[in-house]
């Protein structure tokens, strides 16, 4: 981890009622730097917070948005829940996999996109829906998806 990241974690620790509660912020900081959280980062966070690596990893592996494997420059989250499914979500997921040439959990060989499924995005009135990084897109069809993905480099 970067010196700066370590310093920020130590500062957070001083202002928080329990080491555990800092754990997520520490993981988030570690992730921000690399895009994912490596085994080494887990060990370093554990040491800083006086927790065991197992405790830190137990928390890290529970949640959707701590990545324990490297991801591409952009992460695509495609909704696989019910309302999107009714209006063609499955076709959309198949199209994305096909178009990018990867399965869920994989990254394109140019390290541009990682494709992941996500639960209902709260955009059920404009499904099928997906997010690319921080941006939400709805009413998707194959053509629209192609256009959207072209905007990312």
């Amino acid at each position: 981890m970067e010196r700066e990241t370590r310093q920020k974690i130590i500062e957070d620790l001083a202002s928080c009622p329990s080491a555990h509660a800092v754990c997520f912020d520490a993981l988030r900081l570690a992730e921000k730097h690399n895009g994912w959280v490596s085994d080494d980062s887990i060990r370093e966070v554990a040491e800083l917070l006086d927790m065991t690596p197992e405790e830190v990893d137990a928390a890290a592996t529970f949640y959707n948005h701590i990545y324990r494997k490297p991801v591409g420059r952009h992460v695509i989250l495609v909704c696989e829940s019910v309302s999107c499914w009714i209006v063609g979500g499955q076709t959309m997921m198949d199209f994305l996999k096909d178009h990018l040439g990867i399965q869920f959990g994989e990254t394109t060989s140019d390290e541009k996109f990682t494709l992941l499924p996500i639960q209902c995005l709260g955009a059920c009135d404009c499904g099928p829906a997906m997010m690319v990084d921080d941006d939400l897109y709805g009413d998707l069809d194959a053509e629209k998806v192609k256009q959207i993905l072209e905007c990312y480099d």
Binding site: S18, A21, F24, F62, N64
Partner: peptide, 21 residues
Amino acid sequence: LGRYICGEGTAMVSALQGERA
């Protein structure tokens, strides 16, 4: 950090405490 169970009131408290939800 994302999981459906976080929306359950008591799991949410676990999550806020920095534990598995």
